[in-house]
Nucleic acid binder design. Structure first.
Length: 457
RNA sequence: GAGGGUGUAGCUCAGUAGGUUAGAGCGACAGUUUGUGGCACUGUAGGUCGUGGGUUCGAGACCCAUCAUUCUCCCCA
């Protein structure tokens, strides 16, 4: 056999039939719930102008954007300019002559761009969902791919906390349906802002969030070290340690955090919005837990209110969903004062979790239902006619491609997990019957050809 | 960007301290079986041991480089 020399770009994958079916099961579940909650679909291009994306995801994020090389760089007329601009690229700057487009990095920024461009036409509040791949030039590892799907639902044009309640319920509903046990973590950037305020300045917010976000990974001592490196005083660090040591039930956490930052206006607001979402969500019934996580910060710095993150229980995997409220995402694109809130599902990680915990139902494997045996020229003509009758009734069938030993045809059906075979040989041809065999049970019976629809509908 | 692991048949992997002609299971194909699959038995095909250098009388094994892949950190879904 010839040596195969082709390969796939790092971090990308092909999906074979059974994987696609399982992925579709997840997509369909999410899409269905999005529709159920009144969200409408939107699709945007795989690529955006580089300007649209740059600077939206922080310094690290910018590095992970896949940039697209411009066409026509070999144009002799422009060579001098291009050489000069390429020097800038070597210094880490982007220039439009070299690259001006990039693959989308997430779905939120393209959505904000869409809202800004179409603001006048939208009925507010505007609720859209979007299920498309995104690309990141990250180094692949467990649960991390360079091409992966996000499923986002966002509401813009409303400051109502009802939206947060709805989105929390969407999370709970989807994971209940999929049978994945999760913990939906909730926090408010306002509480973090209040913490920064009593620690001497709003400008410390980013430093503080980056450090405390790592608590469960590196431990309290390392966090304190990092805070110290980031220029916080011992008194400030002491306050943060008090904040981080808050534990207990949701109610206990709220009481404790109120004692610490409840005297600040922003802190009070943050506590109130969490209380509101928690109380409202208790009205609906679902298994997934909604719990306060005061260390939850989220890297994206456009979040301003409630923030969410979803972790799967019983499995080692990064977050499988995240989101939050942003006050002014479209302001970056020239349309100010459009508040919004959204959540995102990471399908590829959800798939990995479900695979690891064996949560996919058997019924996901629905392929061909009936294989018609091919036992000769006359036989196959009759079989073909019968098969078309079933297909007309939406039953998927196949006729074996050549007249060969039954042995082979049986094995084909078995490998493709086709549950029924239909045998129509010379005997059956004569008396107008056919044999239906159930490959799972091994039972078979002879029926009239005219009764075939009854048999399978 | 930093640091580990792994590359041997289509797949999963053995390969002992460096020593003839590199193995197993599964899979594929053919047959036992020209109208009944799964089981069993028999046989066949398939590998310049990721690639390139080096050490050695001798390398799948040891050393260096390189590529691929995987995992961890950073960050994230």
């Amino acid at each position: 056999m010839a040596k195969v020399t082709v390969s796939l770009p790092q971090g990308t994958r092909d999906f074979s039939a059974d994987v696609v079916r399982k992925r579709n099961y997840i997509f369909n579940t999410i899409r269905h719930v999005f529709e159920l909650y009144g969200f409408a679909p939107l699709e945007t291009p795989a690529m955006e102008n580089l300007d649209t994306l740059m600077g939206k995801y922080g310094e690290e994020g910018d590095k992970l954007i896949f940039k697209i090389l411009n066409n026509g760089l070999d144009n002799p007329v422009k060579q001098e300019q291009i050489r000069a601009d390429f020097e800038k690229v070597l210094e880490g700057k982007n220039t439009k002559t070299i690259t001006e487009r990039a693959l989308r990095y997430d779905l939120t920024i393209p959505f904000a761009r869409y809202v800004a461009m179409n603001y006048g036409q939208l009925t507010l509040p505007f609720k859209r969902y979007q299920i498309q791949p995104v690309w990141r030039a990250d180094r692949p590892q467990k649960g991390r791919y360079r091409e992966f799907y996000q499923c986002d639902a966002d509401v813009v044009g409303s400051t109502s906390l009802l939206n947060e309640v709805e989105l929390a319920n969407i999370y709970a509903t989807v994971f209940d349906k999929l049978g994945v046990e999760v913990e939906i973590r909730i926090n408010s950037r306002k509480i973090l802002a209040a913490l920064a305020e009593i620690c001497g300045g709003a400008d410390k917010l980013t430093d503080i969030t980056i450090a405390i976000d790592k608590l469960d990974k590196i431990g309290i001592e390392k966090v304190k070290e990092e805070l110290s490196q980031r220029g916080l005083s011992d008194i400030q660090i002491n306050t943060i340690e008090k904040y981080l040591s808050i534990t207990g039930t949701n109610e206990e956490k709220l009481t404790a955090v109120t004692g610490l930052i409840g005297n600040t206006e922003v802190g009070k607001a943050g506590i109130e919005e969490i209380e509101y979402v928690l109380n409202f969500s208790q009205l609906s019934t679902h298994h997934s837990k909604l719990s306060i996580d005061l260390t939850l910060a989220r890297g994206l710095n456009y979040y301003t209110g409630i923030i969410f993150e979803v972790k799967a229980n019983n499995v080692q995997m990064g977050s499988i969903g995240g989101g939050g409220r942003y006050d002014d995402l479209t302001g970056l694109f020239g349309v100010s004062n459009v508040p919004g809130v959204g959540v995102s599902f990471g399908v590829d990680r959800i798939y990995d979790v479900m695979e690891e915990l064996k949560l996919f139902p058997e019924t996901v494997h629905t392929g061909v239902k009936v294989l018609f045996f091919n036992l000769g020229e006359q036989e196959r003509k009759s079989a073909f006619a019968l098969m078309q009758q079933l297909r007309a009734k939406d039953i998927s069938c196949e006729l074996f491609h050549e007249a060969t030993k039954m042995d082979k045809q049986f094995k084909y059906a078995e490998k493709k997990q086709i549950p029924f075979v239909l045998i129509l040989g010379s005997k059956e041809l004569e008396d107008g019957t056919c044999v239906v065999k159930n490959l799972v049970s091994g039972e078979q019976k002879t029926i009239l050809q005219t009764d075939i629809l009854k048999e399978f509908i």
